[in-house]
Amino acid sequence: MRYAMAIDTKKCVGCSDCVVACQTENNIPLGYARDWVTETINGVYPSLQLEFRSERCNHCDNTPCVRTCPTGASHVIEGGIVKVTHEKCIGCGACIQSCPYDARYSSPEGWVDKCTFCDHRLKDGQNPACVEVCPTHCMYFGDLDDSNSPVSKVMANRKWKVLAPEAGTSPQIFYLI
Protein backbone atom coordinates (compact mmCIF):
# COMPACT_ATOMS: atom_id res chain seq x y z
CA MET A 1 0.00 0.00 0.00
CA ARG A 2 1.27 3.46 -0.86
CA TYR A 3 -0.88 6.45 0.04
CA ALA A 4 -0.46 9.47 -2.22
CA MET A 5 -2.28 12.61 -3.23
CA ALA A 6 -2.78 14.21 -6.63
CA ILE A 7 -3.79 17.87 -6.73
CA ASP A 8 -5.22 19.42 -9.85
CA THR A 9 -3.62 22.83 -10.34
CA LYS A 10 -6.18 23.56 -13.09
CA LYS A 11 -9.05 23.19 -10.65
CA CYS A 12 -7.56 24.75 -7.52
CA VAL A 13 -8.70 28.33 -6.96
CA GLY A 14 -6.56 28.97 -3.88
CA CYS A 15 -9.48 29.40 -1.48
CA SER A 16 -7.51 27.89 1.46
CA ASP A 17 -10.44 25.77 2.57
CA CYS A 18 -8.00 22.84 2.89
CA VAL A 19 -5.90 24.92 5.26
CA VAL A 20 -8.84 25.76 7.51
CA ALA A 21 -10.17 22.19 7.39
CA CYS A 22 -6.79 20.84 8.51
CA GLN A 23 -6.47 23.37 11.29
CA THR A 24 -9.94 22.49 12.55
CA GLU A 25 -9.68 18.72 12.16
CA ASN A 26 -6.25 18.46 13.78
CA ASN A 27 -6.65 21.26 16.33
CA ILE A 28 -3.60 23.15 15.04
CA PRO A 29 -2.38 25.95 17.34
CA LEU A 30 -3.11 29.49 16.23
CA GLY A 31 -0.56 30.83 13.75
CA TYR A 32 0.60 27.41 12.56
CA ALA A 33 -0.40 25.36 9.51
CA ARG A 34 0.25 21.83 8.29
CA ASP A 35 -0.86 22.73 4.78
CA TRP A 36 -0.83 25.99 2.88
CA VAL A 37 -1.57 27.47 -0.52
CA THR A 38 1.15 28.69 -2.85
CA GLU A 39 0.49 30.94 -5.80
CA THR A 40 2.97 31.19 -8.66
CA ILE A 41 2.84 33.62 -11.51
CA ASN A 42 4.90 32.83 -14.59
CA GLY A 43 5.66 34.74 -17.75
CA VAL A 44 5.87 38.31 -19.00
CA TYR A 45 2.96 40.74 -18.77
CA PRO A 46 0.43 40.55 -20.40
CA SER A 47 1.05 36.88 -21.09
CA LEU A 48 0.94 35.51 -17.55
CA GLN A 49 0.16 32.11 -16.16
CA LEU A 50 -1.22 31.60 -12.68
CA GLU A 51 -0.96 28.37 -10.72
CA PHE A 52 -2.39 27.56 -7.32
CA ARG A 53 -1.01 24.70 -5.30
CA SER A 54 -2.21 23.31 -2.01
CA GLU A 55 1.02 22.13 -0.38
CA ARG A 56 1.87 19.92 2.62
CA CYS A 57 4.29 17.22 3.69
CA ASN A 58 5.14 15.16 0.62
CA HIS A 59 5.32 11.88 2.58
CA CYS A 60 8.45 11.11 0.57
CA ASP A 61 9.68 7.65 -0.30
CA ASN A 62 13.22 8.65 0.59
CA THR A 63 12.74 10.48 3.87
CA PRO A 64 15.61 12.72 5.03
CA CYS A 65 13.56 13.70 8.10
CA VAL A 66 13.34 10.10 9.29
CA ARG A 67 17.00 9.50 8.45
CA THR A 68 18.32 12.45 10.46
CA CYS A 69 16.01 12.06 13.47
CA PRO A 70 18.29 11.10 16.39
CA THR A 71 15.61 9.43 18.51
CA GLY A 72 13.41 7.62 16.00
CA ALA A 73 10.49 9.98 16.73
CA SER A 74 10.07 10.60 13.00
CA HIS A 75 9.03 7.33 11.41
CA VAL A 76 7.12 5.86 8.49
CA ILE A 77 3.91 3.93 9.11
CA GLU A 78 1.99 1.60 6.82
CA GLY A 79 1.13 3.20 3.53
CA GLY A 80 4.28 5.38 3.55
CA ILE A 81 2.83 8.03 5.87
CA VAL A 82 5.53 9.95 7.74
CA LYS A 83 4.63 10.62 11.36
CA VAL A 84 6.18 12.03 14.54
CA THR A 85 5.81 10.39 17.95
CA HIS A 86 5.47 13.33 20.33
CA GLU A 87 6.82 11.48 23.36
CA LYS A 88 10.01 10.58 21.50
CA CYS A 89 10.63 14.00 19.92
CA ILE A 90 13.24 16.13 21.71
CA GLY A 91 12.69 19.18 19.50
CA CYS A 92 16.24 19.26 18.14
CA GLY A 93 15.06 20.48 14.73
CA ALA A 94 17.11 18.00 12.66
CA CYS A 95 14.04 16.93 10.66
CA ILE A 96 13.02 20.55 10.05
CA GLN A 97 16.50 21.33 8.73
CA SER A 98 16.45 18.29 6.46
CA CYS A 99 13.04 18.87 4.84
CA PRO A 100 13.36 20.56 1.42
CA TYR A 101 9.65 21.47 1.57
CA ASP A 102 9.81 23.12 5.02
CA ALA A 103 6.66 21.13 5.75
CA ARG A 104 7.42 20.71 9.45
CA TYR A 105 7.26 23.14 12.31
CA SER A 106 8.13 23.18 15.97
CA SER A 107 4.84 23.26 17.87
CA PRO A 108 4.39 25.56 20.89
CA GLU A 109 4.55 22.45 23.11
CA GLY A 110 8.05 21.72 21.77
CA TRP A 111 7.63 18.66 19.62
CA VAL A 112 7.75 18.77 15.86
CA ASP A 113 4.48 18.51 14.01
CA LYS A 114 3.38 17.98 10.43
CA CYS A 115 0.71 16.59 8.09
CA THR A 116 -0.32 13.02 8.89
CA PHE A 117 -2.57 12.49 5.84
CA CYS A 118 -5.25 12.44 8.61
CA ASP A 119 -4.39 8.82 9.35
CA HIS A 120 -7.01 8.83 12.12
CA ARG A 121 -9.64 9.44 9.45
CA LEU A 122 -8.16 6.90 7.04
CA LYS A 123 -8.70 4.19 9.66
CA ASP A 124 -12.42 4.90 9.45
CA GLY A 125 -12.37 4.77 5.67
CA GLN A 126 -12.61 8.53 5.30
CA ASN A 127 -10.50 10.87 3.19
CA PRO A 128 -8.10 13.39 4.75
CA ALA A 129 -9.95 16.53 5.90
CA CYS A 130 -8.39 18.74 3.20
CA VAL A 131 -9.53 16.38 0.43
CA GLU A 132 -13.01 16.09 1.91
CA VAL A 133 -13.75 19.82 2.05
CA CYS A 134 -12.22 21.00 -1.24
CA PRO A 135 -15.04 22.88 -3.00
CA THR A 136 -13.58 22.35 -6.48
CA HIS A 137 -12.75 18.65 -5.85
CA CYS A 138 -9.20 19.32 -6.97
CA MET A 139 -7.59 16.75 -4.65
CA TYR A 140 -7.45 13.01 -5.25
CA PHE A 141 -6.33 10.69 -2.51
CA GLY A 142 -5.77 6.96 -2.30
CA ASP A 143 -3.50 3.98 -2.68
CA LEU A 144 -1.06 4.16 -5.60
CA ASP A 145 -0.74 0.37 -5.58
CA ASP A 146 -4.46 0.06 -6.27
CA SER A 147 -5.16 0.90 -9.91
CA ASN A 148 -8.80 1.67 -9.09
CA SER A 149 -8.07 4.29 -6.43
CA PRO A 150 -8.98 7.90 -7.32
CA VAL A 151 -5.33 8.96 -7.28
CA SER A 152 -4.19 6.13 -9.57
CA LYS A 153 -7.03 6.76 -12.01
CA VAL A 154 -6.45 10.49 -12.34
CA MET A 155 -2.70 10.09 -12.67
CA ALA A 156 -3.12 7.56 -15.44
CA ASN A 157 -4.79 10.20 -17.62
CA ARG A 158 -3.04 13.41 -16.73
CA LYS A 159 0.39 14.97 -16.88
CA TRP A 160 1.85 15.65 -13.49
CA LYS A 161 4.87 17.10 -11.71
CA VAL A 162 6.34 16.93 -8.22
CA LEU A 163 8.02 19.74 -6.28
CA ALA A 164 11.82 19.91 -6.10
CA PRO A 165 12.47 16.38 -7.45
CA GLU A 166 16.16 17.39 -7.56
CA ALA A 167 16.21 17.29 -3.75
CA GLY A 168 16.15 13.53 -4.19
CA THR A 169 13.40 12.69 -1.73
CA SER A 170 10.95 11.03 -4.12
CA PRO A 171 7.90 13.06 -3.02
CA GLN A 172 4.42 11.52 -3.14
CA ILE A 173 2.25 14.60 -3.64
CA PHE A 174 1.63 14.95 -7.36
CA TYR A 175 0.50 18.15 -9.05
CA LEU A 176 -1.64 17.67 -12.14
CA ILE A 177 -0.68 20.18 -14.82
Binding site: G31, Y32, W36, T38, T40, N42, G43, D102, Y105
Partner: peptide, 17 residues
Protein backbone atom coordinates in the same frame (compact mmCIF):
# COMPACT_ATOMS: atom_id res chain seq x y z
CA UNK B 1 12.27 39.50 -18.35
CA UNK B 2 10.75 36.08 -17.84
CA UNK B 3 10.36 35.36 -14.20
CA UNK B 4 8.38 33.41 -11.67
CA UNK B 5 6.69 35.09 -8.77
CA UNK B 6 5.88 32.83 -5.84
CA UNK B 7 3.54 33.77 -3.02
CA UNK B 8 3.18 31.31 -0.18
CA UNK B 9 0.41 31.49 2.38
CA UNK B 10 2.47 29.60 4.95
CA UNK B 11 3.59 31.63 7.95
CA UNK B 12 4.82 29.09 10.50
CA UNK B 13 6.93 30.64 13.27
CA UNK B 14 10.72 30.08 12.84
CA UNK B 15 10.08 28.54 9.39
CA UNK B 16 8.84 31.54 7.38
CA UNK B 17 9.71 33.83 5.70
Amino acid sequence: MKEELIISGRMNPNIDP
